[in-house]
């Protein structure tokens, strides 16, 4: 069964490293090695937004409300010219949409300020863009002549749902503070020497802040039989010293034990 030994070192600023470490007594055969480096820095938090899930079912239920459905039966279809239809929509229907979506869509994770901000966002969006979307993009006035009243109602409701879905990232999000993960960079070279005479790694480039995924895929395979109480010389040359940044270097030795 494979086992692992971990050798950790903390390196500050522009220091190099030259140390000798004793390997575990039960370590008789090194089967792999890998090295990771993590450079931490104090960085300011960044304001960012996280999208919330689109409340499709809620919006569909709201669109089923009599207050909204009742508006469409015959009214919009009876307008003789497009300008009259648009004027009627703006005057009678748009305020109802705005009122319902402002008051009835609430996320528990929003604070008072965030809720107010959402209300302003949805009001502005519906006010400025819904009419253009329905009448110019979807040609609502022409559609009203082709469809039955029931189908026309469904068409508008579906169009409103789609309109809100298109703008979901603008409407439904939460502001959070996020730490900007430090960028990865080549921080230096490492050499590993066993018992002073056998190189495991020689001037191996180490990349700091790499996103490590799986242990198995990281290991560099070796076959290095050892005597009892073997030692490992670790030489690290810092090629990218950055003032104020501390680096944590970890060397993992995979071995077969007795």
């Amino acid at each position: 069964m494979k086992k692992y030994a971990v050798i950790s070192h903390e390196i500050s600023s522009n220091k190099h490293l030259n140390v000798q470490e004793l390997l575990p007594a039960s370590c008789r055969l090194i089967t792999g090695v890998f090295v990771t480096a993590q450079a931490k820095e104090i960085a300011p938090q960044k304001q960012t937004t996280v999208p919330l899930s689109f409340p499709q079912r809620l919006i569909e239920n709201l669109l089923e409300l009599e207050a909204i459905r009742g508006l469409f039966y015959s009214y919009l279809k009876t307008r003789s010219i497009s300008e009259e239809a648009i004027s009627f929509f703006n005057r009678e229907m748009l305020p109802v949409f705005i009122k319902v979506f402002r008051e009835r869509i609430v996320f528990d994770c929003w604070s008072e300020e965030e809720l107010l901000s959402y209300k302003n966002r949805i009001t502005d969006l519906l006010d400025q863009k819904l009419v253009t979307y329905l009448f110019d993009e979807l040609n609502l006035f022409e559609k009203s002549k082709e469809l039955t009243t029931a189908d026309f109602t469904e068409f508008i409701l579906q169009a409103v749902l789609e309109f809100l879905y298109r703008h979901r990232y603008h409407l439904f999000f939460k502001e959070v503070q996020e730490y900007q993960q430090p960028k990865l960079y080549e921080c230096g070279n490492i050499s590993l020497l066993v018992n002073g005479n056998s190189f495991l790694l020689r001037d191996y480039t180490v990349t700091a802040n790499r996103k490590i995924k799986t242990l198995q895929k990281e290991v560099v395979p070796f076959y290095e039989p050892l005597e009892v109480n073997s030692s490992l010389q670790l030489i690290f040359k810092n090629t990218q010293p950055i003032k104020g940044r501390t680096m944590f270097l970890k060397t993992y030795i995979e071995y077969e034990h007795e």
């Binding site: 069964m1 494979k2 086992k3 692992y4 030994a5 971990v6 950790s8 990771t36 993590q38 996103k211 490590i212 995924k213 799986t214 242990l215 198995q216 895929k217 990281e218 970890k250 993992y252």
Partner: peptide
């Protein structure tokens, strides 16, 4: 099983990985 100071990232399963790739074998 896991020695001191082993990074958690090496054993952490993310949504884009298979369990067999990540799981640390032991007996």
């Amino acid at each position: 099983i896991i020695p001191d100071d082993t990074e958690v990232a090496l054993l952490h399963h993310s949504d884009d990985m298979s369990i067999s790739d990540v799981a640390f074998a032991t007996d």
